[in-house]
C-alpha cells in the first residue's frame, strides 16, 4: 500500500525537506498511543451522544427537538442517555488526569508540564499564532510547528476546561439537592445557563472549527487519519511538524518512534468511524443553526 493514499500533501518548501533523504520504503512514525486513540474515540462518541441528547433540550421548542426526543423513546430515555454518556466521559476524563499525574509526578516526567512536547501553551505558541495569521494574509513565511501546534493545544484545553465546566454544572443539576448543601439555590439557575451556553460553544467549536482545522482543510482533507491509526508517514511528519522531526533527528530518537504502516483494515475502519462522526456532527450543526432561524 502507498502512503499517497493516506495523505497527498503538497511538497514542503521549507527546510524540513533537506533534513533527511527520502527512503525507498515509506516510513511511518508513531504519533499517538493506542490509549490516546481510544480516548479520542470514546471522547467523541460520548460527546456526540451528549450533543444529540442535549440539543433537543437546549432548543426544546424547535420542531426537530420533539422528533429527536420521540425517536429515542421520549424524554426519560433522552435524559438517561445523556447521563450515561456523561458518566462514561467523566471516567475517561478522570483516567486521563490520572495518566498525566502519573507521568508528571510519579515518573517525574517534566515534559508533560512544559517544554516542546507539553500541551501547556508557551511563548512560541503566541508567536506561532501571530506568524501563522501573518502568513494567512500573505505576509511572511509559514511558521513551523513542534509536536503540538497552538490550535491543537487550544482544542485540547477547550475540551479539558469544557468538561470541567459542563461536567460540574451538569452534576450540580443532576444531584441538585445534594449540591444545595454547599451551593445556594440560585447557583442552580447559573448552572443551567453555564451548562447550556458552554455546551453550545463546545458543539459549535467542535463541529465548525475542529472539523475544519484538523480534518477538512487542504493538507488533511478529507480526514486526518493519524488519530485513528496512531501513525503518520514520514512525509506528513516532516511537513506538519517540521520542528519536532528535526529535533528528533538531531537527538537521534527518530528511529525509536518508527512504527509499522497502518493496515488497510485499520484505515478503512477509521474512515467509517470518522466520517460517521463528522456526518452526525454536521447534521447537529445544521439543526443548531436552524433553531436560530425557526
Amino acid at each position: 500500500m502507498s502512503n499517497q493514499a493516506i495523505n497527498p500533501a503538497p511538497q514542503p518548501s521549507g527546510t524540513a525537506a533537506q533534513t533527511s533523504a527520502p527512503a525507498n520504503e515509506p516510513r511511518y512514525f508513531r504519533r499517538f498511543t493506542t490509549g490516546q486513540m481510544w480516548m479520542h474515540v470514546i471522547l467523541f462518541s460520548t460527546f456526540l451522544g451528549l450533543a444529540t441528547t442535549g440539543l433537543p433540550l437546549r432548543f426544546s421548542e424547535s420542531p426537530w427537538a420533539r422528533l429527536m426526543a420521540g425517536a429515542v423513546g421520549g424524554f426519560s430515555a433522552i435524559l438517561a442517555f445523556h447521563k450515561f454518556c456523561a458518566l462514561v466521559m467523566t471516567v475517561t476524563f478522570v483516567v486521563h488526569v490520572f495518566e498525566i499525574l502519573k507521568r508528571g509526578i510519579l515518573r517525574r516526567d517534566k515534559s508533560v508540564f512544559w517544554g516542546s512536547t507539553s500541551m501547556v501553551a508557551n511563548w512560541k505558541d503566541a508567536k506561532d499564532l501571530f506568524m501563522h495569521m501573518r502568513w494567512f494574509i500573505g505576509l511572511g513565511k509559514k511558521p513551523e510547528f513542534e509536536r503540538y501546534a497552538y490550535w491543537e493545544k487550544f482544542d485540547y484545553w477547550a475540551v479539558f476546561w469544557g468538561m470541567v465546566v459542563i461536567g460540574f454544572s451538569g452534576y450540580a443539576m443532576w444531584f441538585a439537592p445534594l449540591f444545595a448543601h454547599f451551593l445556594p439555590g440560585w447557583a442552580l439557575n447559573a448552572a443551567l445557563v453555564i451548562h447550556s451556553e458552554e455546551g453550545l460553544l463546545a458543539i459549535l467549536f467542535i463541529f465548525m472549527i475542529h472539523f475544519v482545522n484538523t480534518h477538512l482543510r487542504p493538507g488533511s482533507f478529507p480526514m486526518d487519519m493519524v488519530i485513528f491509526t496512531g501513525v503518520e508517514s514520514e512525509h506528513e511528519f516532516k511537513v506538519k511538524r517540521a520542528l519536532e522531526y528535526e529535533r528528533m533527528a538531531k537527538e537521534g530518537k527518530l528511529e525509536s518512534r518508527l512504527a509499522p504502516a497502518p493496515t488497510k483494515i485499520g484505515i478503512n475502519l477509521g474512515r467509517v468511524v470518522g466520517f460517521t462522526a463528522i456526518a452526525i456532527g454536521l447534521t447537529l450543526l445544521g439543526l443548531t443553526i436552524s433553531a436560530y432561524f425557526y
Binding site: 503538497p10 501563522h132 494567512f136 494574509i137 472549527i209 475544519v212
Partner: peptide
C-alpha cells in the same frame, strides 16, 4: 458566557476561513 462564545467562535471562524483561503492559494 455569551461573550465567550461569540469571541471564541468569531476569532476561530476568521482564523479558519483565512487559513482555508491561504492553503488553497498555496
Amino acid at each position: 458566557m455569551n461573550l465567550l462564545l461569540i469571541s471564541v467562535l468569531t476569532f476561530f471562524i476568521i482564523h479558519t476561513i483565512l487559513w482555508l483561503l491561504r492553503s488553497n492559494f498555496q
